[in-house]
């Protein structure tokens, strides 16, 4: 059995609230969570893409997951709300700071683009309003083939009765088309009280039209493949990964000032002399 993941905890500037969110998630038995930063570009003025807060700033010691001996793993995730195709810039260096990249398309055309071409991991399904379009087989099949996941979040359904109707309606129409494949269920919780346990979410999948097996995968193994998909995005065929080490070298230089700069062969020479 794979471990449980919740790939959407809403970011809030209040550190203590975010901390209690992560602690509650660990208590409920989620091994991996992702803190979600929503970015909604508007046409009028240029906006900054939010920078993720390093998790070491937030808490010194991550809480231990329920039923396991490991601390919880916290990822960063960016959700771009797309109302125009220019809103997603595939080469933006800001995107590289996030572990996961998600897109929330607001029209059918953008949904098609997101499914077929954009280099992303997750497509969010709108749950707070009635879907302005129908899901079509072709883009969804394309997304399934490329390994892009569809995300349904349930916190809005807990908050309000009208939202609950929209969530269930949109989720059911998605499941009709994608037959339960590549769907993840996540919370989008802003408060710790909006989180639910993994078994409850699995059962909640029943309302969204998922089968038993699919809904269990929706909180565990499908999430895992989304994370792995995100990891391969920054690598060459998932084998080689390049990272800048400039942040590491100053620390090394502090300890032995001269030696670390010289390569191994030169170092040996210096010692000989």
């Amino acid at each position: 059995m794979s471990v449980f993941m919740d790939l959407n905890l809403s970011f809030c500037a209040d550190k203590s609230r975010l901390r209690s969110l992560i602690e509650t998630a660990a208590h409920l038995g989620f091994s991996t969570v992702a803190v979600n930063y929503t970015f909604e570009p508007t046409a009028k003025k240029k906006q900054e893409i939010p920078a993720p807060m390093p998790i070491t700033d937030l808490m010194d010691q991550l809480p231990v997951v329920q039923g396991r001996s490991r601390p919880i793993r916290v990822l960063n995730r960016l959700t771009v709300v797309m109302s125009d195709s220019s809103h997603f810039r595939p080469t933006a260096p800001e995107y590289r700071r996030f572990d996961l990249l998600a897109v929330q398309p607001t029209s059918e055309k953008l949904f098609h683009v997101a499914c077929m071409t954009l280099d992303i991991d997750i497509i969010c399904i709108t749950v707070t309003e009635k879907l302005p379009f129908f899901f079509k087989r072709a883009p969804i099949n394309g997304a399934v083939e490329r390994g892009v996941m569809f995300e349904v979040s349930y916190a809005a359904a807990i908050r309000d009765a009208t939202m609950r109707r929209y969530t269930i309606a949109n989720a059911t129409s998605l499941m009709e088309t994608c037959k339960g494949k590549n769907v993840i269920l996540s919370s989008a919780a802003e408060k710790p009280l909006e989180l639910r346990g993994p078994y409850d979410i699995t059962n909640l999948g029943l309302l969204f039209g998922l089968s038993d097996g699919d809904s269990k995968e929706a909180v565990s193994s499908t999430c895992r493949s989304a994370v792995l998909h995100a990891e391969t995005r920054w690598t060459a065929s998932g084998i080689i990964r390049t990272t800048k080490t400039c942040s590491v070298t100053p620390i090394q230089q502090e300890a032995p000032p001269e030696e670390s700069d010289a390569p191994a062969a030169k170092k040996a020479k210096l010692e000989d002399e």
Binding site: Y154, A157, I158, R164, R196, D200, I201, N203, L204, L206, L207
Partner: peptide
Amino acid sequence: RLLWSALPF
């Protein structure tokens, strides 16, 4: 299962 699905709410 039906009754359980109401508990999260």
